[in-house]
Structures are given as C-alpha cells and as structure tokens.
C-alpha cells in the first residue's frame, strides 16, 4: 500500500490545463495544414499533385485577391498530412503549418486554398441544451487501423481527461448520445455500423475522425470500403488527420459543445 501511495506522489498531477490554460506543447516537426506559398508556386509543374497519395491536391481556377488565377487547392479531408507533397515540390513552396485547429462541421469546409478551414460552430441551441454538458460517445472502428482509435481513446487518460467536460466513451450505443467513427467503413462493417447507429437513441450526433472516416483516406476507391462514414450515416463533425493529434480531436469536441471559447474566456 505504501508503495502505491509513494508512486502516486511521484507521478504527480498530469492533466493538461487546456483549454483554460495553454495547450500542451506540440512537437516542432508537427504537421498541421499543408500550406502553399503561391509566390513560389509556378502552378505549372504539378509535382505535388502527382506525389499526393490521395489526390488531396487539386488545381482550382478562381478569383484570388481580385485577379483571376489558378491555385492549388487542398482537401484536408483527404490529406494524410504526410510529407510526400512537400518532398516533391522543387520550389520549396509546400510546407506544413503548426495549427492543430482543423475541425469543421461541413465536409466542403475542409477544402481550402491558403485560408484556414472555417472553424466548427457549436451544435444548434436545442441540441446543445441536451448534450452540451454531458456527451457520451460510442466509438465504432469500421476498418480503422487502430491509430485514430488509440488517439481518441487517449482522451480518456489522465493526461487529457475529457471527463472534465462531461464527455466519456461508453460501452453500449444504448448509453450513447452519438457515434465517433474511425476507418473508411469496410464493407464487412457497414451493417454493424448501421445497426449501432440505429441503436443510439435520438437526438444523436456523429463524429468522423481521421482521413479514412472522412474520405476513405488511402483506401478511397477500394471496392472493399465505402469511402467514409458519411456514406452510411449523417456526419456532424469532421476531424481531419492521419491520425489527428489528440489536441485536434479535443479542440473539435470542445468546439462542437461550444466549450472552446467559453472555457478559455474564464
């Protein structure tokens, strides 16, 4: 017993102060959103586009800064946040920024040029009244590789402790207010996912975590998968990454519950 007590003293208090305090320090090599320096990008070579494993980079025609031009556009829902595009660019125009806040409410908001994605807004008032102070989630892995699962699960450890915000992963869909889905939705998991969603009492929400759950990720277009959660159920929150950093997931969950600002103002 004494050893347990001494170990408790030695381990200390480890829960992050975020969002009331600063977020935990991200590694200096952290890979956030892909940014393209258009002053350096000649738009002719398209080497980044060819190197991209998931066709997340596309040429976009449109009006930028008052003049019509062509620019590369990135779909953060397809992006694996790998280094393939940056390594392929001969002009050094492609980099990753350090912003972990990438979550959106709409799929199309993840498609951006050089602006950050439109931040996720909170749930509608009536839904927020029901779920805002207590959100229980059933996690369903539908072809997920166990990385998104692990970095969602980690939010329940003492380092992050989402219980502070009334959030918890629960064992049964009957106990849940929504699903947190990972994986591209393998054909073999489609029925189980549908049944699990049906088993969650209404009103309910769905959160898609990771490139696979948003777009199919590297498995997009495979006959064995359904290219993401939205092919089966309506999705309320998109959290991009491969896998998303726990901080990205937490930021998204807090924004959905309208807590991101509320707490940081305290």
């Amino acid at each position: 017993m004494i050893k347990i007590l001494l170990s408790r003293l030695q381990q200390g208090h480890r829960t992050t102060k975020y969002p009331a305090g600063p977020p935990p320090e991200l590694p200096d090599r952290f890979r956030g959103r892909v940014k393209i320096d258009f002053a350096r990008c000649p738009m002719a070579c398209r080497q980044c586009q060819q190197a991209c494993p998931t066709a997340a980079l596309q040429k976009a025609e449109g009006s930028f800064g008052g003049s019509s031009a062509a620019r590369m556009r990135i779909d953060l829902g397809k992006c694996l946040f790998c280094t393939d595009c940056a390594a392929a660019c001969p002009h050094g125009a492609v980099t990753h920024d350090k912003d972990y806040r990438l979550t959106t409410r709409k799929r199309e908001d993840l498609i951006v040029c050089d602006e950050p994605p439109r931040p996720a807004c909170p749930l509608d008032k009536p839904l927020l009244r029901i779920l805002g102070r207590s959100l229980r989630l059933r996690q369903v892995s539908a072809g997920g590789c166990n990385a998104c699962e692990a970095d969602s699960n980690v939010l329940g450890t003492i380092g992050w402790d989402i219980g502070r915000f009334g959030m918890q992963f629960v064992a049964s869909p009957r106990h849940a207010d929504g699903l947190l889905i990972t994986g591209p939705v393998s054909d073999n998991m489609k029925l189980a996912l549908e049944k699990t969603w049906q088993a969650v009492p209404a009103p309910k929400i769905v959160i898609a975590v990771g490139a696979c759950a948003i777009s199919g990720g590297p498995y997009a277009g495979h006959a064995e998968v359904h290219d993401g959660a939205a092919s089966v159920v309506p999705v309320d929150l998109f959290i991009p990454g491969c896998p998303p950093h726990p901080l990205t997931i937490l930021d998204g969950l807090l924004k959905l519950l309208g807590m991101a600002r509320r707490i940081s103002e305290i």
Binding site: T54, S186, H222
Partner: peptide
C-alpha cells in the same frame, strides 16, 4: 474479417504513391 480493406490486392502492380501509406496503416499501432 470486419476490417478487410483489400491491402494485398491494392499492392499488386505497385509500388505506387499509396504503397507506403498502405503499409503504414496496415496496422496503425
């Protein structure tokens, strides 16, 4: 079998731009 995503089938004809990513997500841990 619930997690079957067709990795081995997709590797045939490669290596392609996706091959390394299949391997990195074959078992994410």
């Amino acid at each position: 079998g619930y997690q079957h995503r067709g990795v081995e089938r997709a590797m045939i004809g490669g290596p392609t731009a996706r091959s390394s990513h299949y391997m990195e997500t074959l078992a994410g841990d």
